[in-house]
Structures are given as structure tokens and as C-alpha cells.
Design a protein around this nucleic acid. Structure first.
Lengths: 279, 279
DNA sequence: GAGTGGTCTAGACCACTCC
DNA sequence: GAGTGGTCTAGACCACTCC
């Protein structure tokens, strides 16, 4: 690591509180995650470790360290950003808690990737009534270029009529058709996505997105309802019309809380259940 | 705090690694949370902060500090357990992440309680399609003493036929009957629970459990399915027979991962959705 | 002003991985 | 043995709360 190559702008601000730092007070202040409170504070304060967290996230976003790769050691990052190892540690701890980085003792700290079974199960919560969770098989029905409807545009922060891609697929679990999904993606970001590429890809779809489109899904928000199977659902999932299904709507986000996927899935729950841990 | 009153057994073990501690190596070793791995390790190692975490949890379990109360400051706990403030801090950080303790800057660290709106919404994930989440109103239909069926006994780690209490209620959200629930509790632990006490209690049921029965729910595991409303559900929830409903089954745990509640709820989702955050 | 948790530093040794 | 993250200590100052 060439710490001499780091510009002053890359260093955090406001770290001159105990007079034991060179304290390069250059660059713009980093905003703290502001709570939606009554009184808007005039001055914005962000702890050093949160600023470091932001700088590391910027590096990830910029592709400086790619999914699966090792990031520099804590000591190197400390040198680079001009802070102590403890401060870097706290920033990395946070990012590891958010599943953005993964620490491996004795090896180093790595950028999280969807090319890992554990991650898939975090984003697909179906567990079988009998036996261990298994990896799903995808059957792709369509991959079309479309125009964003108002609903899709709203979810993806696009304008109505913007280019989007619609993917339709069936997920098989334990040889049974279990999920019928429609997935909307921003057309610009996923230009070139085809049913052939989807079908040819071995591994989870989010793995393909991060490897071939540079978009890594960080978190998602789901809303679950119960609905009756219509004709299309019934045929795809091999159930009778009217069978109760879960309707799972998801918005998925990449770095910087940017929504980059909207999906709607119909789940059979006669041999699986959607599992959720509350705490 | 009278630190002289603490017995040696209350101090952690194995902290003589850097020769700067008095290191009272008395008492039994605390087991690390063992992963269900292939090779069973002969020696068990637990970091100091995890041992402190265990000691604090024991204090909570024993009722030394009750829900809503402040626990001793970090410095006092450090003195009591014979470790540094940093080690106490790491233990408390963990417990705060698990929502067992709550830190309030400038005030102190408090035992979490279900007498807080925020907590209720962590355990009831229904959000309205329009408007802000509202606090539910309970209508209690029954509170009966029963014998545990095999299914209930299995979930609560009881024997079939053991005394259990069955509570039936309807939850109203935004004036609408939205959830029909059956709740099974261990009879011994919840002796004296009646429909009258439930109805008279202002606040969440878990608040009553912790205040009047000394049982605090820490976490829960839910399994969600889609089912059709039967006659009883239809009448209670004012829907037609066959309407798709969420069936949410829950096992709730108190300190030490002890299962102390099993419930089964039927959710209408025509004006609400079950919300879940994935990461 | 006193007391609390929150942040930050510096430095030590431990456990684990890879050679 | 060298390098990594993991734990632990000691001590400083900051932000916040309550008096």
C-alpha cells in the first residue's frame, strides 16, 4: 500500500479532539445519518469511524475492491486513512454486521459476495417442512425489454416509461414448482441481460448481477400477503385455481440505498414455509 | 456498588493472557457457543467478554435488574467483574444488539422492556397499506387451562398432557379485525393468568408477561404460510370462508433460549402486509 | 459540575491461516 | 515464522443528561 499516494481529500475530518492526531481538516464534512427529528441541527457531526465507513463504502461502490476479494488489512487501512487500527476496526465491524464485508480470522477481510450458499438463504426464506433447505433450480420463462409502469417506476426511482427489463421465472425446490416470480430491473443498468444468459449462468441470479453487471444487492424489504392463485399461477405452480399463495413483494437495494430491483413472487406453502426470526 | 461483596466465583476465568490482571482463576469455565461441527474440541475457550455477557445475563435472569431498570455503569461492572471497561463495553454492546439491554447516552444502560411501542412493532410486523402503523386493540375470547397436545408439548419442551394455558384473541388494527390468534403458554409459569387480567391490562401482552409473570420474551421464530379461512376464522375476521389468510406460527423464547410461548395466528392481508427486512 | 455512555488512541498478546 | 483478525487493557476527551 502506498499511503503517500493518498490525497488529503481522502482523509477524514474533525479528528483533532485529543490533540494526538495530525488532523488534516481538509475535505467536506461527512453527514451523520440524520434522524427525522423535530429540530434540524445547524452543525452536522459524524464520528470518525462513520466517516471511515463511508470511505470504505465508496471504495466498494467504485469497484476498488470487488466481491470476493480481500480488502487491505486493518493496519494498512489505518495508515491510509490516518486513523488508529481501532477506529478502522469499528468501521469494519459495522460493515461486517451489515453483511457488506466478511471477516475471516487469520486470512483477512473480504468483500461479501452472492456466490455463497449462506447468502442465498438469507434472501430466500423458504424452508422445507421436511429435510434441510435445498438450493433452488430456476426455470426462466421470459426476459423482456419493457417500459416502466407507474408502480415499477415509483419503486425503482425511475420515470414512467423508462426502459426496464422484466424477468419471469419459476423456482423449483425439491423438484416442486414452488415460486412464480416477476422481476423488474432498470434497463440501463442491466442492458444486455437475456434469458439465455440467465439460463446459462450457474449459481444465484444475484451472483450474476454482481459479476456481470457490477450491481451488488445489499439488502431488501419485503411485504407479504395471502392471495388466491389465478389461472397463470395455478398452471405454473401446478395447483388448482384459488389455492392460497403467499404474495411476496420485494424492493432490493445496492450501495447507497439505491433501489435496483422490484419483484413480485407467488409462493406455494404446502411443503415449505417462509421463515422469519424476530428479535 | 459493593464490589467487596462479590464472591470469587462471580469472576471470569482465563484472563491472565497479558499478565496485567490479578487473574482470579477460580470457578467453572464458561462454554463458548459451540458450533455443531464435526470435531468436538477437547478444551473449551470463551473470550472474557462472552463470559461477562453470560454473567450479566445471569443477573437479568435472576431478576437482579428488572425490565426498565438501569444496570450499573460500565465502570462499576468493570470493577465488579475485575475486567476493564472496554471488555464490559463489548459484552454490553452485544446485549444491546440483541435488544436485551438498551443504552441511553448520558443516562445509563437499561434492561429492555416490552412496555415500549418500538418493541411491539418488532414483534408484530403488520404494516397498513395506508397511514402509519397503529397500536393494536385486543379482544380476548378465551383463556383456558388445558393439557398439552403432542404438538404444543414439543414446541414448549413439555411432556404431552402437561398443564398449559390457551389464550384466544382477536387483534384489531385501524378498527378492523385483522388477526385471530391462539396462544399456548406453560401452565406452571403462567399460573393465575385469566381473561379478566388480560382484558384489564393496558399495554402489550408481553408487557404483562414480564411485569406480572417475570417472563421476558427475547426473540421469536416464525413460519408463515397461506391458507384458506375456515368457518371460525371467517366469522372472527369478518371475511368469507375460503379467503386467503396468512398463517403465522411462532415460538417465542426467553433468556437461555427457553421456549415459553407457542402461537398460531391467522392474518387478514387486505389492508395490511407482513413486512420483513432482509440483509 | 458530576455522571453517563460514545469515540478514539496506542499497544499488548492470542488464535488462526498459510508458507 | 509472518501475517491476519480477535481480544483485552488503559487512558484520554467528547456529547449528552440531569442537577
Amino acid at each position: 500500500m502506498n499511503s503517500a499516494g493518498m490525497s488529503e481529500e481522502n482523509k477524514p475530518v474533525g479528528s483533532d479532539h485529543s490533540a494526538n492526531k495530525p488532523a488534516s481538516s481538509v475535505g467536506s464534512a461527512v453527514a451523520a445519518s440524520a434522524s427525522a427529528d423535530t429540530s434540524a441541527p445547524v452543525t452536522v457531526y459524524a464520528p470518525l469511524y462513520q466517516q471511515i465507513k463511508g470511505l470504505i463504502t465508496q471504495g466498494l461502490q467504485a469497484g476498488e475492491w470487488r466481491p470476493g476479494e480481500m480488502i487491505p488489512s486493518e493496519m494498512e487501512l489505518a495508515k491510509r486513512y490516518g486513523v488508529s487500527q481501532g477506529t478502522v476496526r469499528k468501521a469494519v465491524d459495522d460493515l461486517a454486521t451489515e453483511h457488506i464485508l466478511i471477516r475471516r480470522q487469520g486470512k483477512g477481510t473480504f468483500v461479501a459476495t452472492h456466490h455463497e450458499e449462506k447468502v442465498s438463504f438469507r434472501f430466500l426464506r423458504l424452508v422445507p417442512d421436511e429435510g434441510e433447505p435445498t438450493y433452488p433450480q430456476s426455470q426462466f420463462l421470459a426476459c423482456k425489454r419493457m417500459r416502466a409502469t407507474p408502480e415499477v417506476a415509483d419503486s425503482l426511482a425511475l420515470a414512467t416509461g423508462d426502459a426496464v427489463i422484466l424477468v419471469k421465472r419459476i423456482l423449483y425446490l425439491q423438484e416442486r414448482p414452488t415460486v412464480l416470480e416477476e422481476i423488474w430491473l432498470p434497463g440501463l443498468q442491466f442492458k444486455g441481460l437475456t434469458a439465455e444468459r440467465l439460463a446459462a449462468y450457474k449459481g444465484p441470479m444475484y451472483g450474476l448481477f454482481e459479476t456481470e453487471f457490477g450491481t451488488r444487492m445489499i439488502r431488501a424489504s419485503e411485504k407479504i400477503r395471502a392471495v388466491a392463485a389465478d389461472q397463470a399461477c395455478a398452471e405454473s405452480l401446478k395447483v388448482t385455481v384459488g389455492t392460497p399463495l403467499l404474495l411476496v413483494e420485494r424492493v432490493a437495494f445496492t450501495y447507497g440505498d439505491q433501489a435496483v430491483e422490484w419483484r413480485r413472487g407467488f409462493y406455494r406453502t404446502d411443503h415449505h414455509a417462509y421463515r422469519n426470526e424476530l428479535s
